[in-house]
Design a protein around this nucleic acid. Structure first.
Lengths: 235, 235
DNA sequence: CGATATCTTGATAAGCATCAATGTGAGTGG
DNA sequence: CCACTCACATTGATGCTTATCAAGATATCG
């Protein structure tokens, strides 16, 4: 009944790729997207740019953000493999997409994408699944932004990161590829508060911090309880 | 380039309804959804319930919300005509849907919905458009929750409400059907802050308040500038 | 018309932001 | 290879915005 462990779980949906469309391919080869690479820090597209294509992430992490006129920034999400970005009903992109790490993607023109939706059986349903999955993630993030404390936000973020990297070495080791500033703008906090909160979690023996980019869960259960808001007023 | 007027604009997408599916109907009548009514305050479904159906809102306003274990609540959105709610890839609903006003809806079983997606030409694409439109709204709301001040939030909300009611009498008259508590839980504020902020906007000659449920824009341009965060630190 | 929920207003406090300084690490050039 | 530099991260002191606690005003419903 409750919004338990409202950790953002984007990117757990199987890839949408023409190569998975099966038999339909032989009858009529669908338009193939073009592979593309991006260096960390490069911008894929900016809010307001003409929306000329849709991208499927095949490797690496991007951040999606919006800016306010005075420079306030909100990162809508960090996306990795199998996410679709750049879909919009408007004719321009509604957010900026920038590479956090080196990134590999597949680009589809809008026409190609529409053709895939209309002509490849099952593609539309999968795109729908991806879309609504991302909507669910966005809703979890709304709960986080609107109602969670700084500690709950940071705990949720660490668990989200861990989820992004599941399938790695030790699942309790978390690599943090983005800056404190990115984390702050994702959680609706300041850099200082993120830093202080991580220090506090370390002091309390919930996590360990080797350096700024390497964290380890010391007490994952506690971290999950904190993230879910189940620690009364202690966090 | 900027997130101008990040006002939530849900519900501007044309209805998804079998009656609009056109020629396909004559060949094979798709499953028709069943009409349903709800009184203000009634719950359509609760977070965690088995997701047995998808609903299209035909009339009235519902609120969608999540709860934390200690009762903190975040309203993900207020939805009205033509919105689709209850779509989830999980097997249970991810939020609670409760009627704010009396509501009319059309219910589709999940099987019916899936059939419509697969068999009615154009339906999937429209569902995709609705889904991504709602994702966009959710992202605007994330910017609001994470980075806007209380005044900017309330201004954005009033403009959103005005958009919901476009097509009514005087477009500068806004009816507020939901409680202050609902507004607070939508904006990530408290009831008191919402009330104080409305009073301040009234004092400043931006809006007029006849009573708790009837507002009027006195200076809509200013309200839009405030909502967009373009008033420097004045608001 | 009284009972009760909702809304508004006021006083105070807490959490997080801001401003400021110090610490740390990665890349560069001597 | 090491010192220098610069961006990034951490820590500290203080303040502001919004939350909390409390009381009174207004609206709603039986």
């Amino acid at each position: 009944m409750y919004a338990r462990a409202a950790v953002n779980e984007a990117n757990k949906i199987p890839a949408i790729s023409w190569t998975t469309a099966g038999a339909a391919m032989t009858a009529k080869p669908p338009a193939v997207g073009s592979p593309q690479k991006l260096r960390a820090g490069q911008t894929l597209f900016a809010e307001g740019d003409d929306a000329t294509g849709v991208f499927e992430v095949s490797q690496g992490i991007l951040k999606l953000y919006k800016l306010m006129p005075d420079g306030r920034r909100q990162i809508m999400g960090f996306v990795s493999s199998d996410s679709l970005i750049g879909i919009t009903s408007a004719d321009s992109y509604l957010y900026t997409a920038e590479a956090v790490t080196d990134v590999g993607l597949v680009r589809y023109s809008r026409a190609q994408f529409d053709r895939l939706v209309d002509e490849v059986p099952g593609f539309a349903r999968r795109a729908l699944a991806v879309g609504f999955h991302e909507l669910n993630s966005a809703q979890d993030q709304m709960l986080l932004l609107g109602r969670k404390t700084a500690t709950e936000k940071v705990a949720s973020f660490l668990l989200f990161l861990s989820g992004l990297q599941s399938g790695s070495v030790d699942s309790d080791d978390v690599h943090v590829p983005m800056s404190r500033s990115d984390i702050a703008d994702y959680l609706g906090l300041t850099v200082e508060t993120v830093s202080r909160t991580l220090t506090k979690l370390k002091r309390d023996g919930v996590i360990a911090l080797r350096n700024a980019t390497n964290t380890k869960f010391v007490n994952r259960d506690l971290l999950e309880d904190i993230a879910a808001g189940e620690m009364a007023s202690a966090y």
